[in-house]
């Protein structure tokens, strides 16, 4: 049985970002906090116009500092935060040790990265903004989202044939 669990974790770890398996069981309402963080995150997305197709076009034409400022200061803030968490061994609110998985290199980061970059500049959105754009009433973007899900599905289908 424990072997099965290990196998499942391994399976989820393939190219995944989120493999933090908590040993703790929580009541369902504990998950609501993720909805709340998502809402706050979505509000920032819209208010800072990060999800705007026009801002993405400016960024890739080097016509505005806005997006570079947003991403740069976000990375800086997150970096300091992670440093503090590690330095002072800060635990989760449930007292668990905070663990962050290291990322291993694969050529997929180059091929996949270029592919995503091409798509990002056409749609003006990375995956997060797609959800927010639909929320702001751009209902047609649900087609873009479905197509992105299809893209992920096709990747899963042909994964073994691609160089990694």
């Amino acid at each position: 049985m424990s072997q099965n669990i290990d196998k499942d974790l391994e399976q989820r770890s393939l190219d995944a970002m989120c493999v933090n398996e908590s040993k703790l069981e929580h009541k369902w309402f504990h998950h609501l906090k993720y909805v709340i963080i998502g809402i706050l995150f979505g509000i920032i997305f819209v208010k800072a116009e990060i999800i705007s197709w026009f801002r993405i076009q400016e960024m890739f034409r080097m016509q505005s500092f806005h997006m570079y400022g947003v991403i740069g200061s976000a990375v800086f803030t997150a970096m300091i935060s992670i440093f503090i968490i590690k330095r002072f061994n800060i635990k989760t609110i449930y007292g668990e040790k905070i663990e962050i998985q290291a990322k291993s290199f694969s050529v997929g980061q180059i091929y996949g990265g270029l592919t995503f970059g091409l798509g990002w500049a056409i749609t003006g959105a990375c995956p997060g903004p797609l959800f927010a754009q639909i929320g702001t009433g751009a209902t047609v973007i649900s087609v873009t989202l479905l197509s992105a899900i299809a893209g992920t599905w096709v990747y899963g289908l042909i994964r073994d044939k691609l160089p990694h």
Binding site: A74, I82, Y111, F116, G119, G128, S147, G151, T152
Partner: peptide
Amino acid sequence: GGFLVGFGTRYAGGCTSGHSIMGLAN
């Protein structure tokens, strides 16, 4: 465009949030 986003992010193992923010910060 959407297809490229979905295919590319998974092949790359993450998007702007997972790699450019979380990954760079770590």
